[in-house]
Design a protein around this nucleic acid. Structure first.
Length: 687
DNA sequence: AGCACGCCGACT
DNA sequence: GTCGGCGTGCTC
């Protein structure tokens, strides 16, 4: 064949990363049009029985010197099919970011590189690709810039002169202190330099507010968004626009930290403490941590904004790695902090979990025609159904959890695996008809409030009534138009927008977060309470926050009373230091599951002994233990926790140990005898 | 991860 | 007699 004779002009081999959990890259004969500057381009290659899109990591001489000893000989290589030239190559710093993520989080290089590329750009035969441009621009006049507060001015005076180099900055400002305005001024300055801005947000579906403010402020600037609600096709277009430099602002959730941006000038991470920045599937990365690494590598500033910073970031301020910038006052001069009250319920008789004082508070709100919010972070009617005669409880068949009573459709539902069935008329074990719901969730509180305040307009907001963004927008409009007197809701309401008429926030059931098995529960509770408290009171009307508790002396509540976030964070860090928890130790965790817990524990015990303890004195491996929720969706789970005072020592150990567990195979995930599936997570948020 | 090959159970 | 279970091994 004439064609293949021509192709013998190939001079190069392509080293290609493939989207598979394999530690190695694959070499191919380069097509005739290959040049050494094709590194970073996508390439269609034959792989196994099929075809894949891979990424060119290196263009090497076909045989000889530069090639690693274990690389296949030239005559063993298959020819690559074609190099895709519809986009510019991925920048080298983008490749470094992905490879760093892969090595740090113990994933395969190909896995990290290709998960960062939208699936639309990973198909060997693209469905007729529309011109990869078209960044939507809404042309309107830029609004007047609001005057800056003294605090905002001070922060900007500090930051603006430092835009041309790396610095990590924790922007610590209470709700309503005007962090967004600071972001906007920084963005403006970076855009003026002709550079791109990456703005990360935790979950865009409930916080489109920030995106709206950015597009409004910069009506003539191409802005692009990247998150799960953006369609596949649009995601590919937006990604391409960032890569070509056409998009000047990229707004996105955690996955957007991997957006290629050749002219990156600034990274902003809003609500940096939010656990949504942690990816929990595939490569389990933390977008905030990667963003800081990326900023460092790119030599640009990173701004981490929060009213309740993560203890990790707080520790980085204390060690001098991050610079702390405070926004101390509320942006509206007349707005005051809400008055916090703790309601000690130890000596009180409660009606459906609600104290008389709390009901009185809601009655006052009604009388004043102001909105109130009752916050209870538990959905459903009651967390469990029990039999009064024999002690039967509504356990899930597939999980180590109770099934929750839902009153609307009269079902028992497992919140972990989704298993649902009608509420039984009588006890499945003894036939007794007296079944009793224990505890309470939003539905039960809503029901009891309707009894107490039959004339009030009560609206419940939780994931059961606001499943989609559309549904939420309808509810939100209802709240804002003041068609609602009392809101009952979960943390869903804590985020969201401003509700101007809302003056009272009542919290019930918060104590559960104080003594939870998860030692990060208190910090999440504190952030949640601060956030929900921030909903109360606006410009002219002062807010009131009432927290029902049986532990009014608890340090967390005492800090909350004083709006003293720094004190709370200092306490948390002291406790962590004493316990030897992160960030004063590095952790990794191996989780495994199978049908039988014994197989899982055996597997973990075996891999634990793979390297004798005396060979890794700096890394301590705990005993394998069943997970807190042993059974999930019919599979039994256990875990192995690894801890080290040194992050490097832990990394070195993992690099030696993981390949031993299953040589040559996938690193992050694997299979073992007995139907065991396992995976590693570095810097776990739950353990 | 896919996917192929490969050797042991209950069904048309 | 076959469809199919998932164990093991490979992908330049």
């Amino acid at each position: 064949m004439q064609k293949s004779l021509e192709n013998q002009a190939v001079l190069w081999r392509l080293r290609v990363a493939i989207d598979a959990p394999l530690a190695v890259n694959f070499d191919y004969l380069a097509p005739a049009d290959t040049t050494p500057s094709d590194v970073g381009l996508r390439v269609v290659v034959p792989f196994g029985s099929g075809r894949r899109v891979g990424l060119i990591l290196a263009v090497l001489p076909l045989s000889g010197d530069g090639t690693a000893a274990d690389a296949p000989a030239a005559d063993q290589l298959k020819p690559a099919e074609s190099i895709l030239r519809d986009l510019p190559p991925m920048p080298v710093d983008w490749i470094s970011l992905c490879l760093f993520a892969a090595s740090y989080y113990q994933a395969a290089p190909g896995e990290a590189l290709l998960q960062a590329i939208p699936t639309g750009l990973r198909k060997p035969d693209p469905v007729k690709r529309r011109a990869l441009k078209a960044v939507s621009k809404i042309e309107h006049e830029a609004p007047m810039q609001p005057a800056l507060t003294a605090g905002q001015t001070a922060v900007l005076d500090d930051l603006l002169p430092r835009l041309n180099g790396y610095s990590a900055n924790l922007l610590f400002g209470i709700t309503g202190s005007g962090k967004t305005e600071v972001y906007l001024r920084l963005i403006e300055a970076v855009l003026a330099q002709g550079k791109q801005v990456l703005l990360l947000v935790p979950e865009i579906n409930l916080t489109p507010l920030l995106e709206a403010r950015v597009t409004q402020r910069f009506p003539h600037v191409p802005v692009v968004s990247l998150h799960s609600e953006v369609t596949e096709a649009a995601r590919a277009r937006h990604f391409a626009a960032a890569l070509t430099g056409e998009a000047h602002i990229v707004i996105g959730t955690r996955l957007a930290v991997f957006t290629p941006m050749p002219k990156l000038g600034l990274i902003i991470i809003d609500e940096e403490h939010d656990p949504a920045y942690k990816q929990l599937e595939g490569m389990r990365y933390h977008a905030r941590d990667l963003a800081v690494w990326r900023a460092h590598q790119a030599g640009v500033p990173v701004v981490l904004g929060s009213a309740t910073p993560s203890p990790e970031s707080w520790a980085n301020v204390q060690s001098g790695r991050y610079q702390r910038l405070d926004l101390p006052e509320r942006a509206h001069a007349d707005a005051v902090l809400p008055a916090m009250t703790l309601l000690d319920t130890r000596r009180m008789t409660l009606d459906e979990g609600l104290s008389a004082q709390l009901l009185e508070e809601l009655a006052q709100g009604l009388a004043a025609k102001e909105q109130s919010l009752l916050f209870i972070n538990r959905r459903g009617y009651a967390p469990v159904l029990t039999c009064t005669a024999c002690g039967w409880v509504s356990n899930c068949r597939r999980c180590a959890a109770h099934r929750v009573v839902h009153s609307l459709d009269r079902t028992l539902r497992c919140h972990h695996c989704g298993d649902t069935s009608p509420i039984p008329r009588q006890c499945p074990d003894c036939g007794n008809a007296d079944l009793r719901p224990l505890g309470r969730g939003t539905q039960r509180v809503e029901e009891s409030l309707r009894k107490h305040f039959p004339q009030a307009r009560i609206l419940r907001v939780d994931r059961d009534v606001a499943t989609t963004r559309k549904q939420w927008e309808v509810l939100e409009a209802q709240i804002r138009s003041q068609d609602v007197d009392i809101l009952v809701g979960t943390q869903m309401l804590a985020k969201g927008h401003d509700f101007p008429a809302l003056t009272r926030v009542c919290v019930v059931g918060a104590d559960a977060g104080l003594f939870a098995a998860d030692w990060r529960a208190p910090e999440r509770l504190f952030a949640q309470l601060m956030q929900v408290a921030g909903r109360a009171g606006r410009a002219d009307r002062p807010g009131r926050v009432i927290v029902q508790t049986e532990h009014p002396d608890h340090a967390l509540y005492q800090c909350l009373l004083r709006h003293d976030t720094p004190a709370f964070l200092d306490l948390e860090l002291t406790a962590r230091q004493q316990a030897g928890f992160p960030p004063y130790a590095a952790q990794a965790i191996v989780r495994a599951e199978a049908k039988q817990i014994d197989n899982v524990l055996d597997f973990l015990q075996r891999i634990r002994g793979l390297v004798p303890q005396e060979q890794h004195p700096e890394v301590f491996i705990y005993d394998p233990v069943p997970m807190r929720m042993v059974r999930l969706a019919g599979r039994e789970r256990a875990q192995l926790l690894l801890e080290s005072p040194s992050r490097i020592a832990l990394q070195n150990f993992l690099n030696q140990w993981l390949p031993m567990i299953s040589a040559g195979r996938g690193m992050t995930r694997g299979h073992a005898p007995g139907g065991v599936r396992w995976g590693v997570e570095v810097d776990p948020l739950e353990c």
